[in-house]
């Protein structure tokens, strides 16, 4: 059973936070998912959605020091703010120094995070660097999604670091963001299995940032792809070792 899903990138800005938001927003099931913005370089959601600084990632990290049932209601949902529409979010502080401290603290208590009751946790880890708290969080997650933009520099970076990544992150899957069409060509060129693609969707991204209203957001390509990915993740958890190919 998938309890935690971590999304990260290696460089560039392929839209990790937007992909994590979309994934959490369409997560199947009644309980859905809670989004934890564990980006050590500072968070964006609080600014996009004009949220209070607390509750959020800092409160969650502090509470998890006492264990999953430390008497503080340790689950991420207990420290989340509910966005309009019902998505619970633990926003990260906007400044890197404070966000990095919270991420380090969170990485020291991954067991408590995994054992926390409530909905599935979607972790937005931002950019991953080796031997950091972020890398530790990605390794401890049930599923790690590497997001890479559909451009040469980012794909090259994925190709070069594939050996290290697949060694340290057993549940790693690669998702291409932007562009359109089949991913088999990319997979052949990079030499890494590509699990899915999240197409570019400016209106959907503006919707996620709270800049624009959409009448039927579930019909946008961004949310269709996210729904497809989350559905596949849930199915794969039911039948392990079989990576469901995602058709987007």
């Amino acid at each position: 059973m998938t309890r935690t899903v971590a999304l990260f990138s290696l460089g560039g800005a392929p839209g990790v936070t937007l992909a994590a938001m979309a994934l959490a927003a369409v997560w199947p099931g009644d309980t859905g998912a809670v989004l934890v913005e564990a980006d050590a370089s500072g968070g964006d959601i609080g600014t996009w959605r004009t949220l209070q600084t607390s509750p959020g990632l800092t409160d969650l990290a502090a509470a998890l020091r006492h264990g999953a049932d430390g008497g503080y209601g340790a689950g991420p949902a207990e420290h989340a703010q509910i966005l309009p529409g019902g998505l619970p979010v633990c926003p990260a502080p906007a400044s890197p120094d404070r966000a990095d401290g919270a991420v380090r603290l969170l990485a020291q208590n991954t067991a408590a995070l995994a054992a926390a009751p409530g909905p599935v946790t979607v972790l937005d880890l931002g950019r991953l660097a080796p031997r950091t708290a972020t890398a530790h969080l990605a390794a401890q997650a049930d599923t790690a999604l590497l997001l890479a933009g559909d451009d040469l520099a980012q794909l090259r970076r994925v190709q070069e670091s594939a050996a290290y990544l697949f060694e340290t992150l057993p549940g790693l899957r690669t998702v291409i963001t932007g562009g359109r069409g089949s991913t088999s060509e990319i997979a052949g060129a990079v030499g890494v299995p590509v699990w899915g693609r999240i197409p570019e969707d400016r209106a959907g991204a503006a919707f996620l940032r709270g800049e624009k209203g959409l009448r039927r957001p579930e019909r946008r390509p961004l949310f269709r792809a996210a729904a497809s990915l989350s559905h596949a993740l849930v199915q794969d958890a039911a039948s392990p070792r079989e990576h469901t190919e995602v058709a987007v």
């Binding site: 927003a25 940032r209 800049e211 209203g213 559905h231 079989e242 058709a247």
Partner: peptide
């Protein structure tokens, strides 16, 4: 668990978000 497990959820699941910009 064969290749037939290609998934495409036919009814689009609801999005638990609202865009509140233009409002």
């Amino acid at each position: 668990t064969g290749p037939a497990s290609r998934t495409r959820p036919s009814p689009a699941p609801p999005v638990r978000l609202l865009g509140s910009g233009p409002r």
